[in-house]
Design a protein around this nucleic acid. Structure first.
Length: 325
DNA sequence: TAGTCGTGGAT
DNA sequence: TATCCAAGACT
């Protein structure tokens, strides 16, 4: 139900829909923007020259390395992931190695990457891979999706980056590139829409290897050039075809993006509690945990939450530790 | 669907 | 100093 759209240059109306109209007719092999130029070729050429040399992109990383990197990169910047990634792969070079450990060791090794439930899920995924897939990261998208901690994005990313398959890999970088280059808007919608998914599929090159290259290239473009703030249009390989640029880079319309407060939230309390437990090999008495937050109700709620999430194991006598099972 | 879930560097 | 934002998943 794509509305008949005209290539308006008056503003960023209906991000995602305009091109949808341009390419959705038959999802042609070489999807093109309104200008008629293919999008993937110049981006892939740019990627060939400017791609960062990241450890999980090297052949020796393997599917497990790719998968570990994708877990760690969920909402955490590359620079902070790098050292933890190296230590992790050195300690647990295969899924079975991690699966043989206590989940608490994964939480400890996760360090300060944030969102420690990801560590627990990565451990759970390693266990499932060992039990269900003979210790090898599955190549099948549906099997990847069935693993804990793997959603639509990560399943597509692992299948594409590790196994060279053809999938629409739609992360926050790609969504922003599409919103601008195709939709003419500064930012994509708050939540991923069906129109965005359709567009991502329509822009996917037919050839499998090219599609995998495009997935990595479009992400890299969003990460290095088409950034959320201080974008570098002068370095962009598709700036001449970018709808947002052609429209004069209009500012974001609509409700301001909900800012996430942190100070004083349960998340901060949870972070402090878990930091104490990470630092201690021996079980920690409740009194040590009570020191990190003065307000008893919130403190108790945060601790209960950690226990409920399986991040903390309560023992007898008011002792706590990272989970052994 | 909107809320929850860490952390720290950059602006 | 306050705000933004970084390769999401899950409920």
């Amino acid at each position: 139900m794509t509305a008949p759209t005209k290539p308006s240059h008056h503003g960023p109306a209906d991000p995602g829909l305009r091109v949808s109209a341009a390419v959705s007719d038959s999802a042609p092999a070489a999807a093109r923007t309104v200008s008629g130029e293919p999008l993937h070729s110049p981006v892939i050429e740019w990627f060939d020259e400017h791609a960062r040399d990241l450890p999980w992109r090297r052949p020796e990383a393997g599917a497990w390395g790719v998968m570990v990197s994708e877990f760690m990169l969920q909402q955490t910047p590359v620079n902070r992931v790098l050292p933890v990634y190296e230590q992790w792969l050195a300690r647990w070079p295969r899924p079975a190695d991690l699966a043989a450990e206590a989940p608490g060791e994964a939480v400890r090794a996760w360090g300060r990457l944030g969102y420690p439930r990801r560590a627990l899920r990565l451990h759970g995924a390693a266990v499932a891979i060992t039990e269900r897939h003979g210790g090898d990261v599955p190549a099948d998208h549906a099997q990847l999706l069935a693993l804990p901690g793997i959603g639509e994005y990560t399943a597509a990313a692992v299948a594409s980056f590790a196994y060279g398959q053809r999938h629409a890999v739609l992360d926050t970088n790609v969504r922003r590139v599409f919103a601008r280059a195709v939709g003419g808007a500064q930012y994509p919608p708050t939540a991923t829409t069906a129109a965005e998914r359709r567009l991502a599929r329509a822009l996917l090159p037919e050839d499998e290897a090219t599609a995998a290259r495009w997935a990595a290239a479009s992400m890299e473009l969003g990460a290095l050039v088409c950034t959320a703030r201080n974008e570098s249009c002068h370095r962009c390989p598709i700036t001449a075809q970018c709808a947002w640029n052609l429209a004069g880079k209009p500012a974001h319309e609509g409700p301001p993006r909900r800012t996430q407060t942190y100070a004083g939230t349960d998340r901060q309390v949870r972070g402090r509690l878990l930091a104490v437990l990470r630092e201690s090999r021996a079980p920690v008495p409740r009194s040590a945990l009570e020191r990190v937050w003065h307000e008893p109700v919130q403190r108790a709620r945060a601790l209960d939450g950690l226990v409920a999430d399986g991040l903390v194991e309560p023992l007898a006598d008011g002792l706590y530790r990272l989970p052994l099972t």
